[in-house]
């Protein structure tokens, strides 16, 4: 009972941070009222999580969109600016961004809270599917935008164009609803992206964060930084009683006591409250 209360308190704090961050980084109200996007200087900067820069309220740039736009540009084949930004954020907090600062993560968290649907922790093929996000990162975010160019030498943002459900949710749906001109240009691609979004919404009702687990290239990048990030989950082995509670409560399928720096850990902190020996903590150093 006490554990349940603690768990709910921790989740409420995280959802509050996620909500405040989402509002703060998407607070261009005029965009929502007029069906336009923010065009000010803040868009020089990337936000740490998946947040489409074509969302009417977005104040910053999406790092995955920015990565593709620079490496797809005819003047560059590599982006020091965006890679440097990802290294900086990754080295500071790794996938903490996914757990606490990603608007699409919040969206999936809330969907998963809807009752009536039987929740599935893991299933056959889950481990292999987790590798898919690395393939998507390599192929759709790096290789195709870099190597396939149009007549004027500019590469398409392949991930944004054919996969990203964040752009559909945050940009596609509101802009098409609010902007008459855009509404008239809707075609197969829009239907395709709506279908991907709908599938992910349905999956989110039964599987925790399917986009983060299987498809998100940003999660793949930050996951690699989990191994060295300053803010990390720590396990004091001298206190750990190997009860396995941390593993049972982890919705990302991680075993925090065994692998506190797992690339799949989004540092939500649920396992900390669940530990009877107080062996886990989230921070810069071990307690």
């Amino acid at each position: 009972m006490v554990k349940d209360k603690n768990r709910t308190k921790k989740e409420s704090l995280r959802h509050t941070v996620q909500g405040l961050w989402t509002v703060a980084t998407n607070s261009f109200v005029t965009g929502f009222l007029k069906g336009k996007i923010y065009t000010g200087p803040l868009k020089n900067l990337c936000v740490p999580g998946m947040n489409c820069y074509s969302c009417p309220g977005a104040l910053g740039s999406c790092p995955i969109g920015a990565l593709q736009s620079v490496i797809g540009d005819r003047n560059y084949s590599f982006t020091f600016y965006v890679v440097g930004f990802l290294m900086l954020v990754g080295a500071i907090c790794g996938r903490f961004v996914c757990g606490w600062l990603c608007p699409f993560g919040l969206f999936q968290d809330l969907l998963h809270k809807i009752p009536f649907f039987k929740k599935t922790g893991t299933f056959k093929g889950d481990r292999i599917l987790r590798k898919l996000k690395y393939i998507i990162l390599a192929v759709f975010v790096v290789i195709l935008p870099m190597c396939v160019a149009d007549a004027v030498g500019i590469g398409d943002p392949w991930f944004c164009k054919y996969i990203c459900p964040v752009g559909t949710l945050e940009g596609g749906i509101p802009l098409v609803l609010l902007n008459e001109g855009l509404r008239q240009t809707v075609g197969f691609l829009y239907t395709w992206k709506i279908a991907i979004l709908l599938i992910l919404i349905l999956l989110s009702l039964i599987i925790y964060r399917p986009f983060c687990k299987y498809l998100c290239p940003l999660g793949a990048i930050y996951g690699a930084f989990n191994k060295l990030s300053a803010v990390s989950l720590h396990c004091d082995k001298s206190k750990c009683v190997s009860c396995g509670n941390c593993n049972k409560v982890c919705k990302m399928g991680v075993y925090p006591a065994e692998e506190p720096r797992s690339a799949e850990c989004i540092k939500c902190g649920l396992c900390i409250k669940e530990c009877p020996a107080d062996a886990l903590n989230l921070g810069v150093k071990n307690k």
């Binding site: 000010g40 969109g65 736009s69 620079v70 982006t79 965006v82 596609g172 809707v186 691609l189 829009y190």
Partner: peptide, 28 residues
Amino acid sequence: FMAFGIYRGEMATVLAKAIRICLECIGI
């Protein structure tokens, strides 16, 4: 890396993309 990227003008490319509605991103 960020400083070098800014020095060689990458930030302007990011801004140029971000201030126009990205038709690919929204599925059009």
